[in-house]
Design a protein around this nucleic acid. Structure first.
Lengths: 188, 188
DNA sequence: ATCATTTCTTAACATTTGTAAAGTATAAAA
DNA sequence: TTTTATACTTTACAAATGTTAAGAAATGAT
């Protein structure tokens, strides 16, 4: 069992049969660098877990690409908007490197949720963990300065800076590339 | 069955026995105006639904009270941080009016989740819906101006402005009270 | 009703951030 | 390698926001 498999099933305690049902329903897919995984105006049919690669989610606002999420190995890629509301998502997900992803269709997952109580609680825990992450990022975004957030980013995900171009980091931090340059110059 | 009860059980399809188990485990509690519902450094034991009243969640940052959430009738009050991690939350929840809340203990809820698959999926849906809300607010916060966000707030929750003082609204929008005054003056 | 307190607005000034443009560095392509 | 394109930094200036302080409005208490 791969580290990714292990991470997926350790989200919540599962019975043997539930583990097999979940992992058995997943398949590995490969994408080239710069591939668009999700696009706006499409209802996304799959949930993905990143085995290898890096992903970026962004919205197209007034003439800008507004980056609001990065995913690396072990992270989940999921349009909750598209998934819950069964409407086209507002986000675009792009793969910044050649990537390998583990995927499972929403339809299959729904079937598993309605059959196995362990998997229903697994899905609950998954959503709850994602919610905490989003909530923490929201609070950080609103009440810390861009300088503090950049320092945190370096501390907590130092590899990200090396793998992602700074224009995307700037957008993610909610400042212009110029301001990010000034922040970086000031921290030296 | 009250409108709040109805809203709670319509989150996800439940069997009769599940509906009864969930609603039967809830109790109504009353709080005075300005009561502190959650405090930092305490692990919160209950989840609340607002029957009547209005609530505000905030963090204490460098000399500021940073408001990041308001709840009104029908909304859920839940410290996911405290709940999932079983650690003290970072947030304080204050009731801005005399309030009536429906509550259920985390412990009871966990028991229901492990017994009834319908309730496990109800809890999943609940977390997923909260996640979408948080995600949307995050994106709004990062990529819209304070003026746009204030206009949206008036459009979508007009009663909020009347029930909550503007310093809290300003904090919620991520700007100073002075800037909010300027925004309001500009929209006339 | 009157007084005291709190909240909101307005103004002046300082600071920060964005925009535009130029230059430098890096990476990709021929 | 040379050329081309892209990404990053720096500068100068404009626009927006924060801070402080003062006055107006609203609220609460006696």
């Amino acid at each position: 069992m791969s580290p990714l498999h292990h991470k997926i099933i350790s989200i919540s305690p599962l019975k043997q049969i539930e583990t097999e049902a979940l992992l058995g329903a997943m398949e590995m897919v490969s994408y080239a660098k710069n591939a668009i995984l999700f696009d706006t105006d499409k209802v996304e049919r799959y949930v993905y877990f990143i085995e290898k690669g890096i992903a970026r989610a962004y919205c197209n606002t007034h003439k800008q690409q507004a980056t609001f999420w990065f995913g690396q190995e072990g992270d989940i890629i999921l349009s909750y908007n598209s998934y819950i509301k069964e409407k086209p998502g507002y986000e675009i997900v792009e793969l910044l490197e050649a990537s390998q992803l583990l995927r499972i269709s929403h339809q299959t997952l729904q079937g598993l949720y309605s059959k196995h109580i362990g998997l229903a609680n697994w899905g609950r825990k998954l959503a709850e963990l994602e919610l905490i992450k989003t909530e923490e990022r929201f609070i950080n975004q609103q009440f810390k300065t861009a300088t503090e957030r950049y320092a945190e980013l370096i501390r907590e995900t130092p590899t990200l800076i090396q793998r992602v171009q700074l224009t995307h980091i700037a957008s993610y931090l909610g400042v212009s590339p110029v301001t990010l340059s000034r922040i970086r110059a000031g921290l030296k």
